[in-house]
């Protein structure tokens, strides 16, 4: 805590005055949001993402069939538009006669939730570590950099695959494996940002008047690195969703009882000759989701820092 009786950051004029800072940052947020709203690609991305998220949320209402219900007499039915297809199963059925459309709708749940949860935990955990190392410097920072160097020696997907193989299937283990593999990126970025912010006037001023380290990190540093964290989080969400699909594809994901797009691709792999649609639709929807996130992420980056536009 800050040294009582002398001054706290609330009493500082202008530079660290929360009211002034809040006014400025509110103006900045509005300006950023305006720039973002004018970016058509970014808005398109946001709408598509929200539509898929809504589909995941409303899966029990909108899915035409139970995603696990097997109709063995209706195995490998083609999509409705093809010869032999029916409107009963718009995107056809898989090798066990399960409705592909319904499985796609339910599969969105895993991708959306795993993406959001993993990215949030990684961002909070990685950023905190990075902020602490970057701000404190010295031996703690040396250890952090060593830890980062060690972790970065492991390719993300290799580590995620090995971790999930060892931990076993299940939603919690999957997220744990992805978090343990993915936190480094945030830590690196935030550490770098904080190191450069540490010497800026407003941080020095706060330190001089005796504001505690934890308060400086929380009130002055974190708000200033939120932009880069958000942009990184968007990029990472795309990576995590593809990684989750890859893990499920290899049979390492949330487990066989829950429909996922990656597992559907794996099911379809054995039927590429007879039923190409099995492996086609899950890939299309993964690509659409990831593309929407990338469009939004690019727009967000441009909106936060207009100088980077189209670079």
């Amino acid at each position: 805590m800050g040294t009582r009786g002398i001054a706290t950051d609330e009493q500082l004029p202008t530079l660290a005055d929360p009211a002034v800072a809040a006014g400025r940052s509110r103006r900045e947020i509005v300006a950023t949001a305006r720039r973002l709203a004018r970016n058509r690609m970014a808005m398109f991305g946001a709408i598509v993402y929200l539509a898929i998220a809504l589909m995941a949320l409303l899966a029990p209402v909108i899915a035409p069939h139970d995603p696990g219900a097997q109709q063995l007499l209706d195995r490998l039915k083609p999509p409705a538009l093809m010869a032999g297809g029916s409107t009963e199963h718009l995107l056809g059925t898989d090798n066990l006669g399960r409705d592909i459309l319904s499985r796609l709708i339910y599969g969105a749940r895993v991708s959306i939730v795993v993406g959001l949860v993993t990215v949030t935990i990684c961002a909070v955990f990685g950023s905190l570590l990075g902020a602490i190392g970057g701000y404190l410097g010295g031996r703690i920072d040396y250890l952090l950099v060593l830890l980062l160097d060690i972790w970065m020696a492991f390719p993300f997907l290799v580590l995620a695959i090995a971790m999930s193989a060892v931990l076993g299937p299940g939603p919690m283990n999957l997220i744990l494996a992805l978090v343990l593999s993915g936190w480094v990126a945030y830590c690196r970025v935030v550490r770098g940002e904080v190191m450069s912010l540490r010497e800026r006037d407003f941080v020095v001023a706060a330190r001089v008047v005796g504001v505690s380290d934890s308060r400086i990190i929380a009130r002055h540093l974190v708000p200033n690195v939120l932009g880069p964290i958000l942009v990184l989080a968007m990029l990472e969400m795309a990576t995590v969703i593809i990684a989750e699909a890859a893990l499920s594809f290899l049979g390492l994901g949330v487990g066989s009882s829950i429909p996922t797009w990656g597992a559907m691709l794996n099911d379809g792999r054995a039927y590429l000759r007879q039923a190409w649609w099995l492996a086609t639709f899950p890939g299309v929807i993964i690509s659409v989701l990831v593309l929407s996130i990338n469009f939004f992420g690019d727009g967000l980056r441009d909106a936060l820092d207009p100088r980077l536009r189209n670079r």
Binding site: A238, I242, F249, L265, G268, A279, I286
Partner: peptide, 12 residues
């Protein structure tokens, strides 16, 4: 290119 999972492109 960066949005489509490589393993899906492979299958296609």
């Amino acid at each position: 290119g960066i949005s489509m999972p490589g393993f899906w492109i492979g299958l296609m």
